[in-house]
Design a protein around this nucleic acid. Structure first.
Lengths: 129, 129
DNA sequence: TTTGTTGCAAAGGGTTTGCAGGAGA
DNA sequence: TCTCCTGCAAACCCTTTGCAACAAA
C-alpha cells in the first residue's frame, strides 16, 4: 500500500479523535491534505480490511469510523452527553452467553455489545450543577 | 390511530415472520393489501413509537423491522445460516456491566447486545452432514 | 516507467417529502 | 363531513463507480 498525504491525513485525523467520525467530518479535519469523499471511503475500506479501523452505523443511518486501538475482541462505550467514545479491552459477557445458549438452543459464535452512559467528566459536571 | 387494511397487513406480515424484514420484503408479503413503500415507512415509524416494532440496521445499510414480542428489555439472537431470529427476554449482562463501570469510570445507562450463532435446526443439519 | 491513487462528476439506491385524491369514523 | 391516510412522483442524501490525470516507488 502506497504512502500518500491523503492516507496519512485520514489516519492522523482518526488517531486524534476521541469519537467516531463521518467521512464529512474526517474531510473537514484533514486541513491541507483534505481530499474528496470518495477517496476517504476507498481508503477506509482498505483500513478496515487491514484491521486499522472499524465502522459503526449510528441510528441516523450514517457510517462512522474509528481507529482500532486493539485488534482483540473489545466493546465501545459512548457518552450520551458529550459523544466521547472509549474502547474497552475487556469483555465480561462471555459467561452470561452460556446461559443464553441453554435458554435458546442456539450455539452463539459472535456477539456485539454497544454501551451507552455518562463519562466521568460529564458525571462530575452533572453533580456540580 | 385509524384502522386501515395497509396497517393490518404490515402487522400481519411482521407477526408471521421469524426474522427482520426490509420494507421491500414487507411489501412483497402483503399480498392483496400491498401498499407503497412510503406508506410502510410511515407506518413503521408509528409502530416503533408505540413500541410495537423495532428497527435494526444490518451491515448492508438497509433498515429491517421486527415485531416486538416484549416491551421489556430484551436481546436478539440471529442464526448466521438461516437468518431466523429469536427474541430473548432474559439479559445476563447486567452483572458484567458493574465491572465495566469500574474499569472505565463511565456510568452505564443503556446497552444493546446483538447475538449471532447457529440455531438448533442448523446445528443438527450441520452434524448430519 | 509502471502501477496504484486521486479527483471529479455522475450514477446508484434506500429513505423521505409534498401534495392531491381517497377512505376511516 | 372532517381528518387522517395512502399513492405517486420527485427530492434527498449518503455511498459507490468510471475514467482520465497524477504521483509514489
Amino acid at each position: 500500500m502506497r504512502q500518500t498525504p491523503q492516507r496519512e491525513g485520514i489516519l492522523r485525523v482518526l488517531n486524534a479523535s476521541d469519537r467516531p467520525l463521518t467521512v464529512e467530518e474526517i474531510s473537514a479535519r484533514m486541513g491541507e491534505d483534505r481530499s474528496g469523499l470518495p477517496t476517504i471511503y476507498r481508503n477506509l475500506e482498505r483500513f478496515i480490511l487491514e484491521g486499522w479501523a472499524e465502522t459503526m452505523l449510528g441510528q441516523d443511518q450514517v457510517m462512522r469510523f474509528v481507529r482500532c486501538n486493539s485488534k482483540r475482541h473489545h466493546h465501545h462505550l459512548e457518552c450520551e452527553k458529550c459523544g466521547r467514545m472509549v474502547e474497552v479491552d475487556f469483555c465480561g459477557v462471555e459467561d452470561s452467553l452460556r446461559q443464553l445458549e441453554i435458554a435458546s438452543g442456539f450455539q452463539i459464535t459472535k456477539h456485539q455489545l454497544s454501551l451507552f452512559g455518562l463519562c466521568s467528566d460529564c458525571q462530575t459536571a452533572e453533580k456540580r450543577h
